[in-house]
């Protein structure tokens, strides 16, 4: 059942031009940034062997690109792609149909969640294709790349969950966009306030969504960061299920 809902959700994204517009714009921006990183690499390439512990193609091209994908997902794509998930159903008055169907709320939420996560994975694959294309003329540090990719997938999973939860709270997609954007942006800029001291700084750093992503990009795997994203994802999904369940009982 989950799979059917997920597939339906994934396909319905591509029924509107929005998904394609997101893909086209994202690809254009990412390609431009990617080529800029490659140019920079080619400019410093000859000087790299003289540096102590010189960084390579993965550090200078692939990691920044994955970082850019994370930022684009966080700021634009996640709010836009998730805004309609539940809010639209509520707006079109199709939500009672879902409530009356013999499906658990868990299946509905997970199905919709996996559908939009599938879309994020398409974007991830597009971004990944660019550094992989460099294999024709160079090597990559696959361990580091895999670590960055794992981080990006975990980040995307958390972003989709936040967006989905916010979408269950309202009937207006525009409100969902703004809400998701606000929450994610706040979680992002929390990391900027890292000049404080002691416990306050540590709490802020623990909450910051970017501070947990950056170590993955450097090729540093830490279970603490995995736990953060999994807990964030799980919390949002659980809240979404509870919200819809209480609404179903209320209806």
């Amino acid at each position: 059942m989950i799979r059917t809902i997920a597939w339906r959700e994934f396909r319905s994204l591509f029924l509107s031009p929005l998904a394609f517009v997101i893909l086209a714009v994202t690809q254009l921006i990412l390609a431009r940034l990617f080529l800029a990183h490659v140019n920079l690499f080619l400019m410093v390439e000859s000087r790299l062997p003289t540096l102590p512990n010189p960084p390579g193609l993965t550090t200078l091209v692939a990691a920044p690109l994955l970082g850019n994908v994370g930022v684009l997902l966080l700021l634009i794509i996640a709010p836009l792609a998730t805004m309609r998930l539940v809010a639209d159903e509520r707006h079109n008055k199709t939500l009672p149909l879902l409530f009356s169907a013999p499906i658990s709320m868990r299946d509905i939420v997970l199905g919709k969640y996996l559908g939009v996560l599938g879309f994020f994975l398409v974007i991830t694959a597009l971004a990944l294709a660019m550094p992989l294309a460099l294999l024709i003329g160079g090597h990559l540090d696959f361990g580091m790349l895999a670590c960055g990719l794992l981080g990006l997938v975990l980040l995307a999973a958390a972003l989709a969950a936040v967006g989905l939860f916010v979408s269950t709270l309202t009937q207006y997609p525009a409100v969902a966009v703004m809400g998701t954007f606000g929450i994610l942006f706040l979680l992002w800029i929390l990391g900027y306030a890292n000049s404080g001291h002691g416990l306050g700084r540590r709490i802020v750093a623990t909450l910051s969504i970017v501070d947990h992503y950056e170590p993955f990009l450097r090729g540093l795997f830490s279970t603490a960061n995995v736990v953060y994203y999994l807990v964030l994802t799980l919390t949002c999904l659980l809240f979404a299920v509870r919200k819809l369940e209480s609404e179903r009982v209320g209806a």
Binding site: M144, F221, V226
Partner: peptide, 24 residues
Amino acid sequence: IATLVVAIGERYRYTADWTANGRN
């Protein structure tokens, strides 16, 4: 519960350096 789990995750962490040359 979520806060507790994240805090425990921060405290008892396993880290590994996945880079080829041990940059980290």
